[in-house]
Structures are given as C-alpha cells and as structure tokens.
C-alpha cells in the first residue's frame, strides 16, 4: 500500500525536491566565509531593483500612458520605473563581471551561470521593448531605428518593433514572466549547488 502511495507523482516530486533542496539548504543559517563579498550584494541589489521595476510597472499599468505622460504622480512613478531599471542593469552587470572573474561555472555550476546569463539577455529584450512602448517621440525614434536592424536579420516578420501592441505585450507579459522565472531558477540553482568557492579552495571542495 505504502509502495503505491510512494509511486504517486506527488510523492515522487516531493521526495525529489526535498532530496535536492532540503529546507536548511534552501534557507541556510550560515554561509561560507567567502560569501562575504560585495559581488553578492550586487546580486541581491539586482533582485531588489527587479521587485521595484515590477511594482512600478504594475502601477503604470493601472492608468496607462496618458496618465504617466500628463500627471505629476504619473511622471514620478514613470521615473521610478526608469531608475529602478537603471539600477537593475547596473547591479546586474557588476554581479555578472564579478562572477565571470570568479569563473562561477566551476564545480557543476554551469546551469547557475547559464540561467544568470539568459536572465541578462531576457532583461535586455525587456528593456528594449520598454523603450519602444513609451508612446512618445523617443520610442518612435528607437523603434524606427531598430526595425532596420531587426529586419536585416529576417526577424522583423515575427518581431515587429513598429507594432506597439505586440511590443507592449512582450514588455508587460512575456518578458517579465521570463525574467522572474529565470531569476527564481538562478537563485534555486545557487541554493542547490552553493556559492562557488575561491580558486584555492576548489581542490578542497572536490576532495570533500
């Protein structure tokens, strides 16, 4: 009887998840000494900025472009959306450079690196679709410049930067979902594999 229950997909998934990521590994009380580095502060700053980006984006969605172009509060929230994006990319690039300098893909952490790098690429696309969704002369200029580049790759037939509706949907639905899911996966990978040790400690980790 118990065998039947353990063969259920719910049991199998639960056991698999708990085996790979037990609670004390998901939310550890202590970290190795080498985790005390500013590079990780920038990783956390990136996530904090992402939270502000999404929160301000949700507020902008409530009343739409006419509101954020014409009202004082709309300008303020629009500016918060812009500057949180600036901080997001600033912190993310510093984190990325830092992790590159540490060769953070060592010790079976390739997927941690890959999810981080793909998050960066998805974020660039999210930033770009945001610029062309502003509904002002700036967005028109960016879109008309970008269309030539994208058309030269043959991608313009599917990804039409002059199609405001399509760009806005990518910006507020598809790409935020991608960024949040990828960020979540990245953090889970960090929790499963742990933070990469310094080069001199690698032999110790392999031996252990």
């Amino acid at each position: 009887m118990s065998t039947d229950i353990e063969r259920q997909w719910t049991s199998r998934i639960r056991h698999s998840v708990v085996d790979k990521l037990p609670p004390d590994k998901l939310l550890p009380d202590t970290q190795p000494a080498y985790v005390a580095s500013w590079i990780y502060v920038f990783g956390v700053t990136t996530m904090a900025a992402l939270a502000v980006v999404i929160a301000t984006g949700c507020i902008l969605a409530l009343d739409g472009p006419q509101w954020w172009h014409s009202s004082t509060l709309g300008h303020y929230i629009n500016s918060m959306h812009l500057w949180s994006v600036e901080i997001f990319f600033f912190a993310m690039v510093v984190h990325l450079w830092g992790k590159f300098s540490m060769a953070a893909w060592r010790g079976g952490r390739s997927m941690t690196w890959v999810t981080g790098a793909v998050t960066f690429l998805a974020s660039i696309l999210a930033g770009f679709t945001g610029y062309v969704s502003q509904t002002n002369f700036d967005s028109q200029w960016i879109a008309t410049q970008a269309k030539d580049g994208i058309n030269s790759t043959g991608g313009g037939a599917f990804f039409n930067v002059l199609n405001l509706g399509q760009m806005l949907m990518w910006h507020i639905v598809l790409l935020p979902i991608a960024a949040v899911v990828l960020t979540g996966l990245h953090v889970v990978m960090v929790r499963i594999r742990g933070v990469v040790p310094p080069f001199e400690d690698t032999k110790t980790e392999v031996a252990a």
């Binding site: 590079i39 502060v41 600033f90 510093v94 830092g98």
Partner: peptide, 9 residues
C-alpha cells in the same frame, strides 16, 4: 560601473 566593479572586488 567599472569603478564600482573594482570597488566590489
């Protein structure tokens, strides 16, 4: 960004 990166290291 470069200055912040060096400072972070």
């Amino acid at each position: 960004m470069v200055a912040t990166f060096l400072a972070a290291l």
